[in-house]
């Protein structure tokens, strides 16, 4: 906290005034931010809490985190903004426990969820198409250098150390390109949705494990938005039932 968000830290604000609070206030702000996050996760009066989560994230992002120019930060800003317009605490939340809703009130608009799902679709398609345009990706040169690069974890180096023939990396690269371009189509198709979720999850978990970038795991959470609510509800009830037995 001190190192990034306080006046004795190394920060570089974008848009915000060029003043960071003292270490004490920076810690207080961050603690409030974390507390608000907990309330958000528990689903406590989210109409108020969600905008606070978004504002807290944007504040810390504009104060320093944006300096690195990491595109995945934008996903969090974007998703949090969109869920500000959703009634996140109507069911399966502390608010719903404290104030049980009638059956009519337990129906909410899927509008924000659909927008996030549409954006995820463009995200995958866009990155896949972009990689398709890159000669280094088409020739399978990016994966082997990424696995022994500055982002690589010990797991990445372990895989990179196998001295696999270039053809293996070329196949893997094309698999990534084809997967990213086609994933939106399969996520929107009921018959192949589960397989798409499994493949996408494996892809993002692989990135987190080998390249130390866990931020795209947000996309796995967003896969739930492609499913019909009744399917999700039945699935959760079966899961809870299995857990209880």
């Amino acid at each position: 906290m001190d190192a990034l968000f306080s006046s004795i830290g190394v920060y570089n604000p974008t848009v915000l005034p060029d003043i960071a609070p003292g270490p004490g206030w920076a810690r207080v702000l961050y603690a409030v931010f974390l507390a608000v996050h907990v309330l958000f996760i528990l689903g406590v009066f989210t109409r108020v809490i969600t905008p606070l989560v978004w504002a807290g994230y944007v504040y810390h992002w504009l104060l320093q985190l944006r300096t690195g120019g990491a595109a995945f930060d934008n996903l969090n800003v974007f998703f949090l903004f969109l869920v500000c317009f959703s009634d996140l605490d109507r069911v399966w939340s502390i608010t719903a426990l404290l104030r049980p809703s009638s059956a009519a009130r337990r129906k909410v608009s899927q509008f924000s969820a659909r927008l996030i799902a549409i954006h995820i679709s463009f995200f995958y398609f866009g990155t896949g198409l972009y990689k398709l345009m890159m000669p280094d990706w088409r020739e399978g040169l990016v994966l082997p250098s990424a696995l022994i690069g500055r982002w690589a974890t010990p797991a990445g180096y372990w895989i990179g150390g196998f001295s696999m023939p270039p053809g293996v990396y070329a196949i893997a690269s094309w698999a990534v390109i084809i997967m990213e371009i086609s994933l939106p189509l399969f996520l929107w198709t009921r018959r192949y949705r589960l397989a798409a979720c499994v493949v996408g999850s494996a892809f993002h978990i692989g990135i987190a494990v080998t390249l130390g970038i866990p931020d795209f795991l947000t996309c796995i959470a967003a896969y739930a938005l492609f499913w019909e609510p009744a399917v999700l509800k039945n699935g959760m009830q079966r899961l809870i039932g299995t857990w209880r037995t």
């Binding site: 190192a3 570089n12 915000l16 005034p17 944006r66 690195g68 982002w151 130390g212 970038i213």
Partner: peptide, 30 residues
């Protein structure tokens, strides 16, 4: 000063701020 993973630390130190910051500084000033 930059408590991040190795890859993100490099990005942070390279300081690829998009556009300019609130003071209108260019990248060398950043």
């Amino acid at each position: 000063f930059f408590p991040f993973s190795r890859g993100l630390q490099y990005n942070m130190m390279r300081a690829e701020v998009w556009g300019v910051n609130s003071s209108g500084q260019n990248q060398s000033e950043v």
